[in-house]
Amino acid sequence: MQGLRLRKYSPYERSRILFCYVMLLPIFALFFVLRIWPIIRTFWMSLFDWNLIGRNHSFIGLDNYAMLFQDPQFLLSMKNTFLYAGASVALCFVISLPIAMVLAKKMRFSPFYQAIYFLPFITPLVPMSVAWKWIYDPMYGILNYILSIFGMPSVGWLIYPNVAIWALIIMNVWKNLGYNIVLLMVGLRNISPVYYEAASIDGAYGWKKFQYITWPLLKPMILYVVVTSTINAFNVFTQVYVMTLGSQAAPGRAVRVLLYDIYENAFRYFRLGYASAEAVILTIIVIALTVVQFKYIKSEV
């Protein structure tokens, strides 16, 4: 079919089109093997009772999905993941916006502060998870020591389910604050000063300026930051994995998150089909978030 259509092009154009295909062929071959085919196969495998060791895979339709919604571990991991993503993204945003607004203006040491706040974002996750585990140590950790200075009792940070998830959220906020700040600063600096000048002439100050200029003009960037951070938070795995490793004060079930549950079902219990169904649900959530972002940005701009 494509060959037929090509006839309408001149020989000169045809050679260029050929050039495009030749150049793109190896690229798309890689994309196909490493991305497209696995994505399709995840959907396919989720319809099977597929064991890593066993040789027979039986087709069971949507049974895996039906089982998932009765599996307390999966439901718990969904709840934890939503809480984790929601709380850390909200906290991170609320803290980073004022900092970004201060740093976006011309002020002394701004690049210095920016670098400090950004530092956790570029440091690898594993060493920082190990370090945070040590910070959270219930007996000798520095966090409980700081609390004790203010007369507060020790907290078993990584022990109690309700607390452990917040311990992870705190660490995530610490890690991603710099990312939010940098992006919001870009957004703020892109707002033309003309708007503010015009507003000043109209007599708008402080909060009013923020409400009528900063917020609406920053909205696309805010949305971008929030959505990418949420997607990132949904993919939380490394911290949970590292912090639950070992027998001491490690939360097991407490911080079960979606990817951890997928990992455990797939590579510990070898239930590849079941884990694929979980992965499909993760994919759907992420796609939904992205679609929201695109829709919203389009309607705004």
Binding site: P153, I159, S247, A250
Partner: peptide, 15 residues
């Protein structure tokens, strides 16, 4: 608060 346990039980840790 307990500072030295009389009997140490395994009460946390994944796995």
């Amino acid at each position: 608060n307990v500072v030295r346990s009389g009997l140490s039980l395994r009460i946390s840790g994944g796995g």
